[in-house]
Design a binder for these strands. Structure first.
Lengths: 127, 127
DNA sequence: AGGCTGTCTCGACGAATGTCAAATCAAACA
DNA sequence: TGTTTGATTTGACATTCGTCGAGACAGCCT
C-alpha cells in the first residue's frame, strides 16, 4: 500500500534533471526536507550503505539476497529488515524470481540525492 | 577529544577529487561505510537537512544561530543539539564571534558525499 | 561589578532503531 | 503431498534519538 515514498514524483520524468536545486544554492523547504530526509536516513547506517553499494554496483544491476546476507555477520532477518528500510526509502526495488529475491537500485533517486549535495568546485589557485 | 570525524582525511587535499569512487561503481568497504554513514545519518533528519541548507546557502557562506533558530518551531536547545550533530558529523564548522555563533558548511565533505551517490546519467532515447 | 542576551550542557522522557530467535510464507523438489 | 531451502514477518529487548525545561557559560552594556 504505497509505502514507497514520493521521491520520484519530485524528479522530472522527461530527463535526468533533478527536481531540486543543490542544497547550497537555495534553502530547501520543509516539505522537500520531509521527503528527502528519509532517504539520507536510510543511507545513514553502515550496513545499509554497504548493502546499497553492493546492489548498485552489482553485475547486471541487481543482487540476490542470498549474495548479500553472507557478506555480513548479521542474521538473515536483520539483513531483510535493512533491505526493507532501503525499499521503503525508495532507494531500491525488490523482485522475486523463483526461489530468490533480487534487489536493484533506483538510479533516479540516487541522482536526485547527489544533485542536492552538489556544490560548486573549489576555486583553483589560478583564480 | 577530536570529535570531528575523519571525513576530510578521505578527501584528496590537492584537488576537488573525491576520495571514493561512486557507490554504484565499486562496493564501498566496511571501513569507508563506517566513516561516511554518520554524515548521511546527520542529514537524515528534516530539521538538520534544512539547517544544513540554510547554512550552506547563506549569504557570505555562514549563518548565525540567531537566524537559524526562529525558522523552526523548536526550542533553542533542540536546534543547538541538531547543530552539534551536524558539527560532529563533520558537515559544518562553528565559530563564535562576539555575542553570536556562526556556522559554515564544509563543501569538501558535501562534495565527497555527492560523489559517492553519483551515478551514470540515464541513457538518452537516441542511444 | 551587575545584569542582560545569546548559546550550550545536563538530565529526563517517550518514541524510534538495530538486533535476534521463533514463527510464517513462497517456491522448488522428492 | 510433504519436505526442504530461501526470505520475510512478528515479538521482544537494549540502545539510540528527538525533544524539552532548567541551569550554566560567554560576551556585551550600563
Amino acid at each position: 500500500m504505497s509505502k514507497q515514498t514520493d521521491l520520484l514524483h519530485l524528479t522530472d520524468p522527461t530527463a535526468g534533471a533533478p527536481c531540486c536545486p543543490p542544497l547550497a544554492q537555495r534553502r530547501v523547504p520543509a516539505e522537500t526536507a520531509a521527503v528527502l530526509a528519509p532517504a539520507f536516513k536510510a543511507l545513514g547506517d553502515p550496513v545499509r550503505l554497504q548493502l546499497m553499494s553492493m546492489i548498485a554496483s552489482a553485475e547486471g544491476g541487481e543482487a540476490c539476497v542470498c549474495d548479500l546476507t553472507p557478506a555480513f555477520s548479521l542474521s538473515g532477518p536483520t539483513i531483510s529488515h535493512h533491505l526493507k528500510t532501503l525499499r521503503e526509502a525508495g532507494l531500491v526495488d525488490a523482485e522475486r524470481r523463483g526461489t530468490w529475491v533480487y534487489y536493484r537500485a533506483r538510479p533516479a533517486v540516487l541522482r536526485q540525492l547527489a544533485a542536492l549535495l552538489t556544490v560548486a568546485p573549489p576555486p583553483t589557485s589560478g583564480d
